[in-house]
Design a protein around this nucleic acid. Structure first.
Lengths: 335, 335
DNA sequence: CTGTTAGCGCCTTCAC
DNA sequence: GTGAAGGCGCTAACAG
């Protein structure tokens, strides 16, 4: 059993308050008593009980995190970022994953609020359309930061990537290297970042006076279900497609795999660009061009903002945009 | 502010004890009172304060997890497994990552114990040789389960993959498909699972009367540092190597990348097998043979065992072995 | 400078 | 059946 303040007090014939004061560096305390207490505390390996502290101070020093899936690399990297900032500020992190389900997401919110976390960092599930459960958090004035998959209609602090810009730039890259029939594999359109990316794509085509062929826009989810089905239909189109901008790297490599099976060449026949710049992208054959999505930085930014909001409840909400980069590799070179 | 038992008591002109009894389904309580309390509790959306409960019951219903890195896919999948079991048993999970540093690992142990978690699930850092800090946990009788990277000398409950067997089988697969000069990229040898894999490799060679060429055993870390350096030396060896069994898929594809740059062919000239069976393995060119390491199942098993040990302190320690599978794809076909 | 008292939210004797 | 009292570990206001 861990020693308590009481144990120390008893042994030293002091009151618990005195011991508490010694331990917390209170000014009103005699040097010798303090030394005595500290010495014994060290000897007994005294560790303050954070639960008792939480009960008293109504602060748990725990940040709650809700993400769609722990094992999606973007989110696991974001978590690393959150952890880093949290740890350096003396906070713990409690993570729940919604498994892309609104229902579970609702439960997660409840669970974390019940646990009395000091604040929340949330990236919504792809099912999330109704956002009452999220609005309620804000009503309760629980400090909250949304990141990546945010809700436009929610007035809250947010951390996002520059989805529009990067999708625009990537599409532009494909156009300026000679592509005209560019497929866009878009994510669920209830998600802010998916919508923004699609806008960027459309805008780039517009700038170069290319007409938008709606058949070239695929509304997928992130999982890569049906990749085979839609890729095959795409490859059957006339006139043929000459570029594919995929929702993520996993999808991109699966598409490349299918393209190769058809005896077509990447990038000669079809250029492919992915999203996330996973570590394997550079070693793929051909090396995969990809948008470097700053997961770690986004996690860090979210945690930093959250801590600020916890420290100062009156801080106005803000939106932080993290820059993405297009990493051009062989899969999208000029043909 | 969340309503408390006191709030309910006041409104109903009852004592807090009565309300508490009503809420906890105590037998000594009049049905009507109970109904009244429950009704108001629901109306106020009363949620018991787990912190107060923890303080009293000395149980936090939190499992602590220490892993080397959140963003390594094996561990993020394992975490999913832990979460799933924990959630279904009403537990929360608190995750710390050691970033492969013993020092941070020590701090993590301290942090989680200070947080009064009910138990620990640990996979050690690759730096971990001295295990005093881990032994201390067991001395303190904190329920603990080690998984994957376990310490042989620690008498504790463990969850491991059948590293020896699967390395043996994989090596055998390479031998029986005609390979004779098989490179083994081994992990840090202070780690139990790395050692076991190497043993499996050696044993398989022995069975087929192949001599072990120590130059073909690479002692790497998991990160894939120096891959380029050692791969180039390997490719320069005489007689030439004809197979490489890599420590993980990331390393495997980087090696394949380097092999191709040399105008050598996989699998014709050199067969390559990876470890972890990441999702991209199937789409790689050539599709990568890989050992399917059951991360999710290991996480689940660890959590299940831990919960059992929490519920029953006298439970003897045990070791659970989870079966791995070799997924054979084109990168290691017979030449 | 130090001790006493009270209370965070809850549960659990012990009375009645 | 129900209420009052006490305590989990800690801190803070109030006395001295």
């Amino acid at each position: 059993m861990n020693p308590t303040i009481k144990d120390i007090a008893r042994r030293l014939n002091l009151s618990t308050s005195t011991v508490s004061r010694a331990l917390t560096d209170h000014p009103d305390i005699k040097k010798e008593t303090k030394a005595l207490v500290l010495q014994l505390a060290r000897k007994l390996d005294y560790q303050p009980n954070p639960i008792a502290l939480s009960l008293k101070q109504k602060r748990t020093h725990i940040l709650g995190v809700i993400i769609p899936e722990t094992s999606i690399s973007f989110f696991s990297k974001a978590i690393s970022g959150v952890q880093e900032i949290a740890a350096s500020a003396g906070y713990q992190v409690m993570i729940c994953s919604s498994h892309e389900s609104v229902e579970i997401e609702k439960q997660n919110v409840q669970t974390l609020l019940n646990s009395r976390v000091d604040g929340l960092i949330i990236s919504v599930s792809k099912e999330t359309r109704n956002i009452e459960h999220l609005a309620k958090i804000l009503d309760k004035r629980v400090p909250t930061v949304f990141f990546d998959r945010v809700c436009e209609s929610l007035h809250a602090t947010k951390v996002v990537a520059d989805n529009f810009t990067i999708a625009f730039k990537t599409t532009e890259h494909l156009i300026t290297t000679g592509r005209k029939r560019i497929v866009f594999v878009a994510g669920p359109q209830n998600l802010y970042n998916s919508r923004k990316r699609l806008e960027g794509y459309r805008e780039a085509l517009k700038k170069y006076n290319l007409t938008v062929d709606e058949r070239l826009i695929i509304y997928s989810n992130y999982e890569g279900e049906n990749v085979k089905t839609y890729t095959e239909s795409l490859l059957a189109l006339k006139p043929p497609v000459d570029a594919i901008f995929a929702i993520n790297d996993r999808t991109a490599i699966e598409i490349i795999h299918l393209i190769k099976q058809r005896q077509l060449k990447v990038p000669e026949d079809i250029a492919v660009v992915g999203f996330n710049n996973e570590r394997f992208a550079a070693f793929f054959d051909p090396p995969l061009s990809s948008v470097d999505h700053p997961a770690f930085e986004m996690g860090k930014a979210a945690a930093e903002l959250l801590l600020q909001h916890i420290d100062n409840a009156k801080l106005p909400t803000q939106k932080r945009v993290i820059k993405s980069d297009l990493i051009i590799r062989a899969s999208s070179f000029k043909n």
